[in-house]
Design a protein around this nucleic acid. Structure first.
Lengths: 165, 165
DNA sequence: GCTCTAACTACTACAAGTGAAAGTCAGGTA
DNA sequence: TACCTGACTTTCACTTGTAGTAGTTAGAGC
């Protein structure tokens, strides 16, 4: 139940990780609210109050998180203006932010498998235009990897709550 | 920069996720210390004070986390006894715990790409016995997926601190 | 100028994670 | 029996995340 360690690392007692990427990543986005906001962004949400409603967060939390995530370059603040409305800002994922997709969906996948009833969680990840399930996992770089645009999310059973425009 | 939504979900304004697996997963293991302990377990650590030293945690934190992670079935507490020593317990990953591997390594991969210098982080994930880089990402279930036993971790440059038996 | 609304900002309270240090405990050795 | 050590447990201080409520702001419409 553990990964093989390469030559120089083989004696596990003889070394310790410095500058661990996992620790650094958890330090800046390792909160429930950040993950839920990233989830929503991956589902296409861009506006402030949509984030609030759909993550069931509060104004304060979403405001603080979006500010932070924008500062560290995961979101880009982009002005928009609907006719008859004032100018506002929407928050769109940058490539750096979108690159967290595997991490976010890996957490979802684990929850679907181990914290939900037998039929899995509320949403299913499939290959776009098909019903082929998609799994998040390791593979050799040379093999075909799916990108965000190749993915599609489908409802799984009757979990989805309707009517929350 | 977002995933396509399937028919019933297409109108993003009309639904909201219930029982989100991401939220549930973050609720029970979404802390820095849990992730670092899982990281160490994937690298082969099983004993209490090794977890303490290698995660640079404190007794208190590691104790609390291992207890919790064992209670929810990610670790199994297994007795062992060295000659001339008293009986002790080691903590080994269960299949449920090991199944978090993609999530843990996805966080590492993102940190390597976006929080580290150009040459990446301290460790590199490769296909076992080769130098082929491994990436964590989505792929169709039918395609060959690598398992934990297919992976190997190699040192990347001079990041590793020696001598911490 | 006044109102209305989306998008914040501030304030309070509480829970949880983290860190340091000290205390406990079981069972081995001297 | 006394001591020693690894493996925890407890306590306290501090920080951060979360939740609720209230207040502020920038413009468009009236």
């Amino acid at each position: 139940m553990s990964v093989k360690l390469n030559g120089a690392l083989e004696d596990r007692g003889a070394w310790r990780v410095e500058n661990c990427s996992i620790a650094m990543t958890m330090d800046i986005i390792g909160t429930r609210s950040s993950m839920l906001i990233l989830r929503e962004a991956l589902y296409g949400t861009t506006r402030f109050d949509d984030f609030v409603r759909r993550t069931r967060g509060t104004d304060a939390i979403v405001s603080a998180r979006l500010k932070h995530l924008t500062e560290i370059g995961l979101f880009e603040k982009r002005p928009y203006q609907e006719e008859g409305k004032r100018k506002r800002y929407e928050y769109v994922l940058t490539p750096k932010g979108a690159d967290l997709m595997p991490a976010v969906f890996a957490l979802m996948q684990w929850g679907d498998r181990h914290l939900q009833p037998d039929d899995g969680g509320p949403l299913r990840l499939v290959k776009r235009g098909t019903d082929i399930p998609v799994v998040i996992g390791p593979h050799a770089r040379s093999e075909a990897q799916l990108e965000i645009d190749d993915l599609e999310i489908a409802a799984n059973g009757n979990w989805i709550e309707q009517g929350h425009a």
